[in-house]
């Protein structure tokens, strides 16, 4: 068993019109984790994903799945596509059927599963994505967010080892985006590797275990969210911004409102706890633990008091 589910080595790819989309790209995606691929528009995220699924063949370099190099013959390709599923960015290009049920049954049927298994998987995928009540609706009558869920169910029904999602939260309203992220967390719980691309640094920071930054067809940085987002040069070089949490944390630490050299807070609650703890111990905490929870309202009051003091 390899530690990395998908690896690419010295990948080069140019589109027929001459656009060099990937340049000597090297990447390793850890197995069973949540990876976010960050990069501005045109960085090469979608192109990279198409290589992971064997749709595009590198002009030079290699792609490995589960430690084994990808072979581009019919059989091994089908096997690869069974294990690596892509949810495409534009649902209207992925949904080919007007019927939600037919649409989801397509993938598992191609795996050669018996009819009853396919039906079970379609039901499971619809339940997981919360689209059971859309079963009888035609895809052209769905909202954008609903279509997006159907495209995720499409891939879930194939039960891949790695689920790739190209810009899953682009165009989604905050509520749907949050639900989608929760859905990914649930999927990841049963061991599925999840890879998503985004240019939303806040999402990547609080969701991912591992972050890869792509710029101009190259990987210019990779690592844990903490290490990536405290590297100012890297963030600037990739035309990205700092997540607001890191920003606020650094400002507070600079002003002495909060202890520096702490593990970075991953969400708002973490930040509030950090501030609360700093108050109690008078600014001298050594072994800090986020689980020292205080009263939520009191924390909020403290925050507002602090903000006034800033």
């Amino acid at each position: 068993m390899a530690d990395y589910i998908l690896e690419a080595e010295n990948l080069n790819y140019a589109y027929p019109d001459g656009t060099q989309a990937l340049r000597n790209l090297c990447i390793q995606i850890p197995k069973g984790r949540k990876t976010a691929v960050l990069g501005s528009n045109g960085a090469g995220k979608s192109t990279l994903f198409l290589h992971f699924n064997g749709i595009l063949k590198p002009q030079s370099g290699t792609v490995r799945f589960d430690g084994k190099e990808i072979r581009y013959d019919r059989k091994p390709l089908l096997e690869l596509r069974k294990n690596v599923g892509i949810v495409f960015q534009d649902p209207d290009s992925q949904l080919f059927s007007a019927s939600v049920y037919q649409e989801i049954s397509f993938g598992p049927l191609n795996l050669g599963l018996p009819e009853q298994t396919v039906r079970d998987r379609v039901e499971q995928a619809m339940t997981a994505t919360g689209i059971n009540e859309l079963k009888d609706k035609p895809t052209h009558m769905l909202s954008y967010g609903q279509k997006k869920r159907v495209t995720i169910a499409d891939i879930l029904a194939m039960e891949p080892q790695a689920l790739i999602c190209d810009e899953p939260t682009a165009w989604l309203d905050p509520k749907y985006a949050k639900q989608t992220v929760q859905l990914f967390n649930e999927i990841s719980r049963n061991g599925t590797t999840i890879i998503l691309s985004t240019h939303d640094v806040n999402l990547a920071y609080s969701w991912a275990d591992y972050i890869v930054i792509l710029s101009d067809g190259r990987v210019i940085g990779e690592g844990t969210p903490d290490s990536i987002f405290t590297n100012d040069d890297l963030i600037r070089g990739a035309d990205l911004e700092k997540p607001w949490l890191v920003d606020v944390y650094e400002i507070l630490a600079e002003r002495g409102c909060i202890a520096a050299n702490m593990p970075l807070p991953r969400d708002k609650e973490d930040l509030l706890k950090l501030m609360d703890c700093h108050d109690k111990s008078g600014g001298e905490q050594e072994n800090y633990d986020y689980s020292t929870v205080g009263n939520a309202r009191r924390e909020r009051n403290k925050l507002s008091a602090r903000c006034k003091g800033l």
Partner: peptide, 17 residues
């Protein structure tokens, strides 16, 4: 591309409810 990535090999097989 999207169909191919789901194992399309020339025939669209689907199940009706």
């Amino acid at each position: 591309i999207a169909l191919s990535s789901r194992g399309y090999t020339g025939q669209i097989n689907v199940l009706a409810p």
